[in-house]
Design a protein around this nucleic acid. Structure first.
Lengths: 251, 251
DNA sequence: CGGCCAATTGAACCCAATCAAAGAATGTGG
DNA sequence: CCACATTCTTTGATTGGGTTCAATTGGCCG
């Protein structure tokens, strides 16, 4: 969509200009480092659509935080097909999944014009020891990463419609957390193809589920802009849809 | 199977008696703490089959390392069905997925008589700051946790037979890494039901795939003891089975 | 022995993948 | 600015793999 010719700029912008400052690992590191080390620590860069932040096999030398835009973390299966492991939205850390490794196992690609904040790994490792706040923040982000993956595993047993509903809700919930507005109307930064490769569904199935949700009056969408008309029904589809039975809790 | 009446014993055994000492996070912490704090730091406990190490909702106050036996990390879906997130084998950390949270989101249950080593979270957090080795080890274990979850996500697109083959290989490879023997013959600590709830398959499908692998001469199994007859074929089923096509690598 | 649980096998059904094709949207080059 | 190319999206028809339902066997334990 917005495919301006923005080059891969690296600037020493102050991280304090970031909207997500309070919840940002990078900002936390910067506070620990102190103002004097500002320029040596945090840098920002802008990626255009399709541009990789890092590739699989690249050395792990930094962690990134999304300031605006969106990325997908992906890898390729043995037959060469794209598998999307996670979408990275503003406030998310990128590259944490390679911590403990020398090389990245996945690659991160911008879905649209995207600004990220870079924290060198040497700085991060140093501050983990120096600052309890940084260590705590890092563990929080890692825990979030694990939690999201575990949540994603739920999809294994779900039907296509439930997966789509849960996916939309996840997008909603995360956006609700980040901002405080635009709850019922937002724009998906990823294509239907991306959604399919994230959820393990064929593109056609994704499309069909979107149209079904539309005909059922749950959502209205035009292209990638989605409006939630009946959030109650959407939540019911995502959660309770599986438990219309008396639901006896297992001991 | 082996369901002796072993009670939940807590003893101050020295961690050095553990076979997996070199690769164990707990041992690493103990080295950092020093010998004098030995008794106050690391304790071991034995669980019998079905006994929980911790439950969902429990306060996160320790991390555990499996010394012998096996556990499953599970939770319950909205309709009350068991979802198995991971199996924990000797050398694995248990409870790391809740780091960054106050409460456990999953519960860990022993699959058989199991001995685990307990590292209090206060000790761990303290040593993360004090010892670079502990910090590095912790990040390694967290990275492994994330890597396993990402690997598990592959299953989404795979057929039942490929899932089972990959599952057996994962068990094999991990056991091969841990010990140095029993490569082609081993005993699965989990039931077919557990395998199904881990892989997102019906129990009947798991059973069918096992019998198919048997009739194809890939494995021979009697109960939970599995013997791999044709490891090449097993690996081909798990990996290459998806790419009998000319396989054009995506750019 | 009877009850319980795990495992196995068969038959019918169902959801999602696949194949096929056309339309919409976006970007490119003349 | 328009024609063309490419990618994305949508819809229909068909197929297939896995679930579901159902029945049977075998082991373990009270």
């Amino acid at each position: 969509m917005l495919n301006q010719n923005v080059s891969n700029t690296v600037a020493a912008l102050p991280c304090t200009s970031c909207l997500r400052h309070s919840a940002c690992l990078g900002a936390c590191v910067q506070d620990a480092v102190g103002a004097e080390g500002e320029n040596a620590c945090i840098t920002t860069m802008t990626l255009q659509r399709g541009q990789p932040l890092f590739r699989a096999g690249d050395a792990v030398d930094a962690v990134y935080i999304v300031q605006s835009g969106a990325l997908k973390s992906r890898r390729h299966s043995y037959n060469g097909e794209e598998e999307i492991v996670a979408f990275r939205l503003p406030g998310d850390s990128v590259g944490l999944d390679a911590i403990g490794n020398r090389e990245h196992g996945t690659e991160a690609v911008a879905l649209c014009s995207t600004r990220v904040c870079q924290v060198p790994l040497t700085t991060l490792r140093r501050e983990v020891h120096a600052s309890p706040a940084v260590a705590s923040h890092l563990l929080d982000d890692l825990g979030r990463e694990i939690g999201q993956l575990q949540e994603h595993l739920r999809d294994e047993r779900r039907t296509a419609q439930v997966r789509i509903a849960a996916f939309l809700l996840a997008q909603l919930q995360r956006r609700r957390r980040l901002f405080g507005a635009q709850i019922d109307r937002f724009t998906l930064p990823m294509t239907r193809i991306d959604v399919g490769r994230f959820l393990g569904l064929a593109t056609e199935t994704v499309s069909r589920m979107f149209t079904r949700l539309q005909t059922d009056g749950v959502i209205a969408c035009e292209g990638n802009s989605v409006q939630v008309l009946d959030s109650t029904m959407l939540a019911r589809l995502a959660d309770v849809a599986e438990s219309f039975q008396p639901l006896a809790r297992v001991a």
